[in-house]
Design a protein around this nucleic acid. Structure first.
Lengths: 259, 259
DNA sequence: TATTTTAATTGGTTTAAACATTATACCAAT
DNA sequence: ATTGGTATAATGTTTAAACCAATTAAAATA
């Protein structure tokens, strides 16, 4: 007995989205190129302009295009980044579907392996970037979020050095989650993450010492992860029954590893 | 000199999205509950119905609501899942921003740790689920995609067993990517992944033998990852200069680990 | 009672018009 | 030569109204 699937008629705008997305993916429109105007597309597809707008909006929301207004306005094809992946992770966090202890655990799994790969891939250019990132951690800041960003730069560079774009996207997401968590707890990154915590990692990576890089990153993930958990606890105590976002009980990972 | 940020006026629909999203996240509207109708929201927000539709569309596209038509229709709040995270990963793959060798490498990093956690969390219920999933791999199929789904079930259960929802979301994404890659290559999962490949993993997990579970999963990730790479190579040769999606050269990870 | 038809509600789509934003061109003032 | 102001045109943004499509519950009919 074959299984029949539910049938759903696509919305007009969805059919338009599919075609436009296909033309982008197959390279007919390349990054930086501009799609035809709404009015043109409306004629070409023989649908209303509203349907075109919905289609373009969906492509915008998933990162394939950016839309600008004005005389040179229109929908421009992007070089797709992991930005929207980060957003998807953030939404899960906001909806209380993932928690800080889970975040800590995943960082502890992933980031030491990233450091391993980075140590294998050290180049003068990357070394320079890491050095600059370390130095930037010490600079005066104009905002807490800027401090936070600076303190995540080393992680991002290491992820780029891993040469694996999935890992890079994942690390960016983990950094975004971390940033969001710290903001939500109204914590001060200057105290939670003093400058220099990354130095042992970076030195091991500079030396191409793979195992030292793994160990240093593991230690950092444990230490800073513990700080994040304490931060959340403090926030809860200060705000009575209020967790970071909702009244749902946060999920605690079943086990801790590598301690 | 303080840094000034670019100023961008929110679209009307974006402001509406924010408010609606906030009311969902804070629990004012709970999963399964229905938001007011478009016409009602249009009045409450004092904006046009088109703006409301755009706002609702964005919430739909990120998974917070589903929209139905009809007398009991409207926008219903969902229990957010990682489905849209999977889509975000898939888009990166479609846009040629991540590749099969990268996928292989990440699976090799992540899945053995998932198996480790699963082995620590074995329960009779999970054992039953794993047993059923193993048996289901042997059943006759009605489509290749069904076969593919069945063969990923063990991975999904192990991810659930890990007790870490980020890992679960990540494994679902990796499975989605794998599935998509196999489809794109028009390969037959029955030959690439014979039934029973998961047996050593499951047995180790049943026995609560953590290290054996890690090793078995690592071996599986290497073996099947190699199969995926061969699959892609075969597809390329058969389709001349055509990679899976575009003419852009696929990125090869810089290093392999744990071999 | 079971089935069919009708009515109502909600979203989906179209059309048209007006408004807002933006880049460019041109001109005036310094 | 540089800066500021204005006009124009192109594109997106927003609104309103009308109509269509899908769905379900209620009413009517067999």
């Amino acid at each position: 007995m074959p299984r029949f699937k539910p049938v759903r008629q696509l919305r007009v705008s969805e059919a338009v989205t599919e075609q436009l997305k296909e033309s982008i993916i197959t390279g007919h429109f390349k990054p930086s190129e501009k799609l035809p105007s709404e009015r043109d597309l409306s004629e070409q597809f023989q649908v209303s302009r509203v349907a075109i707008r919905e289609a373009l909006r969906k492509l915008e929301n998933s990162g394939f295009i950016i839309i600008r207004q004005g005389v040179t306005g229109g929908a421009y094809v992007t070089n797709l980044t992991s930005e929207y992946l980060v957003s998807a992770f953030l939404d899960l966090f906001l909806a209380d579907k993932i928690s800080i202890p889970e975040l800590r655990q995943v960082r502890l799994i992933v980031e030491p392996e990233v450091a391993r790969l980075a140590a294998l891939n050290i180049t003068p250019e990357y070394a320079q970037q890491l050095k600059e990132a370390l130095d930037a951690e010490e600079l005066p800041i104009s905002s807490l979020s800027e401090d936070m960003e600076r303190k995540q730069k080393v992680h991002i560079i290491l992820a780029e050095m891993s040469g694996n774009r999935i890992l890079e996207a994942l690390v960016r997401s983990l950094m975004g989650l971390t940033r969001r968590a710290v903001e939500a707890a109204e914590a001060d990154p200057r105290f939670m993450h003093p400058p220099g915590m990354h130095r042992p990692i970076v030195e091991a990576v500079f030396a191409g010492d793979v195992e030292a890089a793994v160990t240093a990153m593991k230690n950092h993930a444990i230490e800073f992860g513990d700080t994040l958990i304490k931060m959340e606890k403090t926030y809860r105590e200060k705000n009575s029954l209020s967790p970071l976002y909702t009244t749902t009980k946060k999920k605690e990972p079943a086990n801790s590893i590598a301690q």
